[in-house]
Design a protein around this nucleic acid. Structure first.
Length: 961
RNA sequence: GCCCCGGUAGCCCAGCGGAAGAGGCAGUGCUCUCAAACAGCAUCCAGCGUGGGUUCGAAUCCCACCCGGGGUACCA
């Protein structure tokens, strides 16, 4: 955009230019800060300031916690922040006490990696980034309650993160009560014998270490040896949720390996059912609910024991338990598969191959043990990518052992194969090749028998030998499924499941069960830049929780905070925690109640999800030093109420990429705190909204390298050039590396923050992704210029509004706009709200006359949530001494919002033949008579008999002949 | 493979059972200007991805398919 020339400035010295916008915006931002315009009062406590405001209905509006990136913001980042700000401002103007603020999620890998790259201490670089980001966001005019902003790295904040960890650590899940309870209750049960210890000895006879181990199997936060995702390239272990389907780290895209390590875990699985069930009460996008449901992966089925005998051993020596959702097909189970890592494999492998087995079963090995060892080695060396790529080609090997199908009594061979996963169900399956496509593929590859036990409904016949794939439908009848004591023949799938489950239960062979895909949450990381655990170990290695008085456990200053990383492909490495290098800090003398003793600190740190698991609660009461949140304050802002049975934040806006990770973890912590009586809501976020992405064109040269988008030229024929060379164009993400980033700072400088806000909101619906187009920004700038001109004389700077009464047409346009804008803003349809404001403003511009004051003021109020700076300025120039932020939003007069006459379309056989101007309240009968009497209609009918008349007063009459 | 979301003027998008268009960008012409930019005024532009169906009537509802985006993936 070109500079305003001196000539133009002379002609219109008071025009709304970027310079004027910048001046106005800076001035009002200062005003808001000075006057605490957006400070939301609490009903009690140290933020209790304004009882009148606190008496209003509340709205708690939140954005997802950003991490303060060192790279700076591009225009895509603030999209959600602007949207929540517009919504919050609208709610504030419609009589609500609105809490809206923004803090920073400043621990974790991104902040640490940035710090490592730039060679500065994470705290220094992170705090500098926060300062930069705060300045960038301030420029947008966001109405945040800045008193309530904090960062997760503030010791005052992570003191409570640690406190919550201890609450979780000191809790267990009481299945009978279906809630978490203090671990002390469990200790009491063990102590008084209500609950037996695992080995039956009295509780008091267990050593402290043994007691600690027993409690560890119940605690909601526990340390355990388990197979975890070890990422040498990052030097840390990762949660399942942080590993992509390709078996790489979500951050950095490094290979991830399975390793058995002692790590902290969170028993989120205890909450699987509630996390699933409570989704129903939430106002979330269905897609996100679906992703959470899939992640939790509840499936109903049965566990069935298959006795296994080896050729050498006695029958029934071992039993392999399988999990199946198709217990109705048990008669069709013709072989079994164990995961290669299954711990029963070694116990059942015989010394030699049984006689007469097909050659493919042995994998060419001389003994079962050799075959198993070779297959295990091969399976372990395969990356998940390879495993996935080869998913269609089933591999495996016979263990040499046979199990007994408990309903048919037939021996079934037991295989190991990597298509059965150790981590799901029991790590063992019964294979029903006729009715499961994976088993079918395996059976074909290994010449295994199939038995049809569900009659196909697609006419393929009952001989699986002739089939191309398994028949897996549920909507069919069971056949070939009977023994001496039970018959499923003729039953449907559902009835058969019930019947066979009852039969299995009666004989103690199996039972109905529910299985979850969800696993416990790996909670420790080998990082410096995270919350330290408030845990120390004594000389016996028994963990001890630190008392409240010793919190926070602050991160020590260290010289070397870098993670120890390794060759990304070297699986034979193990993590080293940066904190362990600091002996002075690790070894500590404490008095935990039995005199001063020497302890060793936990040197893992918490994952970056920890700080974002509960921040919504701290916004409510950020300075409380006695509790994480005052219960009265929590209940005021988040408590359950009409339409929000679980309570929670009224509106939570953020990207869909957090569908599982953050949202699941935060819900889990919230429920624990609820169970322990600290809060009254049992869901953190009532309404969730996912904003779309702002995309941008990526231009690449012949080598495929991105070229600066700003310097690409377009010719008429839709081809693009950079420095004379043809380049390709593709819609993608916006970012520095793609050389297509546009920053809010440059748009603000060019047009002002109000224009940027309007443009981002006008581009399209909030939840849809759309491409950024810098050229189009000027449209919103023009709107603001016209608005300005409708109130202020560009030459003199005088307010030009008249005291005349508005004419009827203008009044109607105004009330129609008010009516529409209210609905649109309340429903986050900012794009259409802006269109309606533009329409009204254009109407006033076209009329040419000075705008009546009454109309100008209402117009300013209408646009105030969207373009708050210009609204404040005009509001002030119109003579109002107070901020527009708490002014009342206009209310439409329903009479005026409706047109006095509407055009009614008269159709004959669906074709428009006449138009009538009728009052909107006209009765159906009157309208029909009017239509039938219309000369054009009479002509069109040509005397034909009228069969039917459809009347949709007042807009349409359709005559069928 | 499966599951979501979306395909309406050159572009971004309204309309979501009843005359295809709310708003914006770009284009074109004109006004202002010495000229240009800015600004203003006017104007051009689609038959709603494709094919079926339901209906008096479909961009809107249903089915199938195509294209684009996202998610997920041997979960027994």
């Amino acid at each position: 955009m070109s500079e305003t020339t001196p000539a133009a400035e002379t002609a219109a010295p008071h025009r709304y230019t970027a310079q004027l916008a910048a001046e106005i915006e800076g001035r009002w931002q200062d005003f808001w800060d000075t006057h605490g315009t957006f400070a939301a009062p609490n009903p009690s406590g140290d933020l209790d300031a304004d009882p009148d405001l606190a008496a209003r209905p509340k709205k708690f509006i939140m954005d997802m916690f950003p991490y303060p990136s060192g790279a700076g913001l591009h225009v895509g980042h603030p999209l959600g922040y602007i949207a929540t700000d517009v919504y919050a401002r609208y709610q504030r103007m419609t009589g609500h006490n609105v809490l809206h603020t923004l803090g920073f999620d400043a621990f974790g890998l991104p902040a640490e990696q940035y710090a490592v790259q730039t060679g500065t201490h994470p705290r220094v670089s992170t705090e500098a980034n926060i300062v930069t980001m705060r300045a960038q966001l301030r420029r947008l005019g966001l109405g945040h309650d800045k008193r309530r902003s904090f960062a997760t790295i503030d010791p005052d904040y992570y003191r409570w993160t640690q406190w919550i960890f201890l609450q979780i650590y000191d809790s267990w899940y009481d299945k009978a009560a279906d809630r978490a309870r203090p671990i002390a209750d469990l200790v009491a049960q063990f102590a008084d014998g209500t609950r037996a210890t695992p080995d039956g000895r009295p509780w008091a006879e267990l050593t402290p270490a043994e007691q600690s181990d027993v409690l560890g199997t119940h605690r909601l936060a526990y340390a355990a040896e388990s197979p975890v995702n070890w990422c040498p390239g990052l030097g840390t272990v990762l949660a399942n949720e942080e590993v992509t389907a390709e078996g790489r780290s979500e951050r950095g895209n490094y290979p991830v390996f399975k390793a058995n390590l002692r790590q902290w875990m969170m028993r989120i699985t205890a909450y699987a059912d509630r996390l699933l069930a409570d989704l129903d009460a939430l106002d979330w996008p269905e897609a996100i609910k679906l992703q959470q449901r899939n992640w939790i992966g509840r499936s109903e089925g049965a566990r069935v024991d298959f006795p296994v005998h080896t050729v050498d051993g006695a029958p029934g020596e071992h039993a392999v338990t399988v999990f199946t959702t198709r217990q109705d097909t048990l008669f069709g189970a013709t072989y079994m598969v164990l995961a290669p890592e299954h711990d029963l494999v070694d116990a059942i492998v015989p010394a030699g191959w049984p006689a007469g087995i097909p050659e493919v079963w042995t994998g060419g090995h001389a003994t079962p043990a050799a075959a198993v060892a070779a297959y295990r080695k091969q399976a372990a060396s395969k990356s998940d990518v390879e495993r996935q790529a080869e998913a269609k080609d089933k591999t495996g090997v016979f263990t040499g052992a046979y199990a007994v199908n408990p309903v048919t009594g037939e021996p079934v061979p037991v295989f190991i194969a990597d298509y059965v996963l150790m981590g799901y169900g029991t790590g063992a399956i019964m294979a029903v090749p006729a009715h499961d496509s994976r088993d079918f593929a395996f059976a074909r590859a290994f010449e295994l028998p199939m038995r049809c036990v569900v009659r196909p409904t697609d006419g393929r016949g009952e001989d699986p030998a002739t089939w191309d794939d398994a028949f897996a439908s549920y909507d069919a009848e069971i056949v070939n499924s009977a023994n001496d004591t039970v018959s499923l023949n003729g039953l449907g799938v559902t009835e058969a499941k019930t019947a066979i489950t009852a039969w299995l239960t009666e004989r103690d062979i199996g039972h109905g069960t529910v299985n979850y895909r969800l696993r416990d949450w790996l909670f420790s990381r080998q990082r410096y830049w995270g919350e330290p655990f408030p845990i120390v170990y004594d000389e016996d290695g028994v963990p001890h929780a630190l008392p409240d008085s010793m919190l926070p456990v602050e991160l020590p200053e260290v010289d070397d905070y870098s993670p120890r990383t390794f060759d990304p492909d070297d699986a034979d490495t193990s993590p080293e925690t940066p904190l362990s290098r600091n002996a002075d800090w690790v070894t500590v003398e404490l008095d935990l109640g039995d005199g001063p003793r020497t302890y060793r600190r936990e040197t893992n740190t918490m994952p970056n999800w920890a700080g974002s698991c509960w921040y919504e609660l701290r916004y409510l009461d950020p300075f409380n030093s006695q509790a994480l949140v005052d219960p009265a304050v929590e209940s005021y802002w988040m408590g359950p109420r009409e339409g929000q049975p679980a309570g929670g934040v009224d509106l939570y806006v953020g990207g869909a990429e957090h569908a599982v990770l953050h949202l699941l973890y935060a819900r889990f912590w919230h429920k624990v705190l609820y169970d322990l009586g600290h809060i009254s809501s049992f869901e953190p976020f009532h309404k969730l909204y996912n904003q779309g992405m702002i995309q941008a064109y990526v231009y690449r040269d012949a080598r495929g390298i991105a070229v600066p988008a700003a310097e690409v030229t377009e010719d008429g024929a839709g081809t693009y050039h950079y420095q004379g060379e043809k380049v390709s164009r593709l819609l993608g993400k916006m970012g520095k590396s793609l050389k297509n980033a546009v920053t809010p700072d440059e748009i603000c400088a060019e047009y002002g923050a109000d224009t940027l806000r309007l443009y981002e909101m006008a581009m399209g619906p909030l939840d849809v992704s759309r491409p950024w187009d810098t050229r189009a920004v000027v449209g919103q700038y023009r709107l603001l210029q016209r608005l300005w001109r409708n109130v202020v004389d560009e030459t003199t700077g005088e307010v030009t509004v008249s005291d005349a009464e508005p004419d009827e047409q203008t009044l109607r346009a105004l009330h129609k706009a008010i009516d529409g804008v209210r609905g649109d803003l309340a429903d986050l349809r900012f794009n259409t709200a802006i269109a309606k404001i533009t329409e009204l403003n254009n109407h006033l511009t076209k009329s040419g006359a000075p705008v009546p004051r009454a109309v100008a003021e209402q117009l300013v109020l209408l646009i105030a949530p969207l373009a708050p700076h210009i609204a404040e300025e005009l509001w002030s120039r119109l003579g109002h001494p107070t901020s527009v932020a708490h002014a009342d939003f206009p209310v439409a007069d329903p009479e005026l919002a409706q047109d006095p006459a509407v055009t009614c379309v008269v159709q004959v056989k669906g074709k428009v033949k006449a138009r009538l101007e009728v009052p909107p309240a006209i009765a159906d009968a009157d309208l029909e008579a009017l239509a039938l009497a219309d000369p054009a209609v009479v002509t069109a009918l040509g005397g034909a008999a009228v069969r039917k008349v459809i009347v949709r007063a007042p807009k349409l009459v359709n005559i069928v002949v």
